[in-house]
């Protein structure tokens, strides 16, 4: 057998949120069909950098390995994406791995995305059905709406859109594109629509929909191809209509 093919990885590492970052290079044995996660597992198996030093293995997050959980989002060759569907064969080498720095870094490629959970809580991205008695089946949804709403429901809170958005930065409090799209989803749901005004009010709050500057990076990076810019424009319409007319009804 000829000499083993190796994959060259450059990883931006960091011990914890307060320490400074550094890069470390690795060469791991290649197997066909490998993804970035498999390459990281190789480092874990044999944590030796290119200088031959034994180092702590690189930390990352992953779960489903089929682009359905969102956990493995990281910046690969400059773009935020899921590591599990980033196939080595399709990537230019050396492969550069970085944490999504729009979030606080926990360690190496692991980031803390709780701000996304907070945003979902703020906009009430759920359908409230709890009660003291059986509320019965909800109203039906038109098939025409169900089709596009299903696409929005594919969001797995990976944070790629938040990472790519220029208006998510230290100077603003923008909640991020995904949260706006989730409001559209739950305001379309026939039962969710019963609370649509609460979500709209939240989008008018601090860091809400008005922080969007239409750079449209979000729709480019979303791994689930969610029409984020369509959601934002549609919600702009809903929010403005509500804002401009609600006071007339008071």
């Amino acid at each position: 057998m000829s000499e083993q093919k190796r994959i060259h990885l450059i990883v931006e590492r960091q011990n914890d949120n307060n320490s400074s970052s550094y890069t470390e290079e690795f060469k791991v044995p290649y197997r066909s069909g490998m993804n970035v996660i498999a390459a990281l597992m190789e480092i874990q198996r044999n944590p030796k950098n290119t200088k031959g030093e034994n180092v702590a293995p690189v930390a990352w997050e992953s779960n489903c390995l089929e682009e359905i959980c969102g956990a493995c989002m990281m910046v690969i060759n400059g773009k935020p994406r899921q590591a599990c569907t980033a196939l080595i064969d399709n990537l230019e080498q050396p492969i550069k791995l970085q944490p999504a720095r729009t979030f606080p870094v926990v360690r190496d490629l692991v980031v803390d995305r709780s701000r996304m959970f907070d945003a979902l809580k703020r906009v009430k991205a759920w359908v409230p059905i709890d009660g003291t008695y059986d509320l019965g089946p909800g109203p039906r949804m038109a098939e025409r709406d169900r089709q596009w709403a299903y696409e929005l429901s594919k969001c797995f809170t990976c944070g790629a859109c938040v990472e790519a958005c220029p208006n998510v930065n230290e100077k603003t409090s923008f909640i991020g594109p995904f949260a706006i799209s989730q409001v559209r989803l739950f305001n379309t749901h026939p039962t969710g629509a019963m609370h649509s005004h609460e979500r709209i009010e939240a989008l008018m709050g601090e860091g809400g929909i008005h922080e969007c500057g239409n750079s449209q990076n979000c729709v480019q990076v979303c791994p689930k191809n969610i029409p984020l810019t369509t959601s934002i424009a549609a919600m702009n319409g809903q929010v403005n209509r509500y804002a401009l007319t609600s006071w007339l009804r008071k």
Partner: peptide, 21 residues
């Protein structure tokens, strides 16, 4: 105020709309 509180990442993400931004 908006111009100076916006982030700029067109170097990293060179898509047309981001450049227009």
């Amino acid at each position: 105020y908006i111009a100076f509180t916006s982030g700029y990442n067109a170097g990293r993400y060179t898509w047309f709309r981001n450049q227009m931004f």
